[in-house]
């Protein structure tokens, strides 16, 4: 066997690699909320904002709103139902749902009523008022506003992967369903496609 296969120098270089891996202090940089920053290729804030931008613009421009206001002579009341995550990622759907809610309320053309989970807490409070609040400020029970439409939706994904390349396709569908007759009055859709190349080597 020949032990001189490697020179002392090459051994020393390999060894010194070990000492470069020192730690650095944490650094923080503040960025604008609409700046696109993609890290892992997974669903992130930019995707959520893209979905809300598309949906907000679409939902207020469509005929259902005009039709309802004309027929009923009042603003429609909407309740948020379940937006099911059928994708392959744990996605927080609340971000774009509340963006959409805010846009619709602020347009002054649509009203929102509290969702089933929010309602429980409010009913508790009303029950408490019944016992403890002054007569003039007490809110009676049984006068809740019933919703006209329910907002429901799904997020679906299709993933295709080969080696280090991954194609991710997201489709978000939101639907407004009339509570009176089950009619779907509006369907909003946003598609997002990403090509993710994973690195095979790092320092």
């Amino acid at each position: 066997m020949n032990w001189s296969l490697f020179s002392t120098k090459s051994a020393a270089v390999l060894l010194s690699c070990a000492f470069f891996a020192g730690g650095c202090a944490t650094s923080v940089e503040r960025v604008e909320v609409d700046k696109t920053i993609d890290l892992s290729g997974a669903w992130n804030d930019t995707d959520s904002q893209l979905v809300s931008a598309e949906m907000m613009q679409d939902v207020l421009a469509r005929a259902w709103l005009e039709d309802f206001t004309r027929d009923k002579k009042r603003q429609p009341a909407v309740i948020v139902g379940e937006v099911r995550n059928l994708s392959h990622e744990h996605i927080n759907v609340n971000t774009f749902v509340s963006d959409l809610e805010r846009a619709m309320i602020n347009s002054n053309r649509v009203q929102f009523v509290a969702s089933s989970t929010e309602r429980q807490e409010i009913r508790e409070e009303r029950k408490d008022q019944d016992l403890n609040a002054a007569e003039a400020t007490r809110k009676p029970m049984g006068e809740e506003k019933g919703a006209d439409f329910m907002l429901k939706g799904t997020i679906n994904t299709i993933i295709d992967a080969s080696g280090k390349t991954q194609l991710r396709f997201y489709q978000v569908d939101l639907t407004l369903i009339s509570l009176a007759d089950n009619r779907k009055v509006w369907v909003g859709q946003k598609k997002i496609k990403k090509l993710v190349e994973r690195s095979k080597l790092t320092y």
Partner: peptide, 28 residues
Amino acid sequence: EAAKQEMERLYAASVSENALSFVVNDAT
């Protein structure tokens, strides 16, 4: 979930760690 993300991060092999493993041991 944190473990999963760390595994994903380690999908890219570290050149420096692998070089070190060549002279020290695999556990580096």
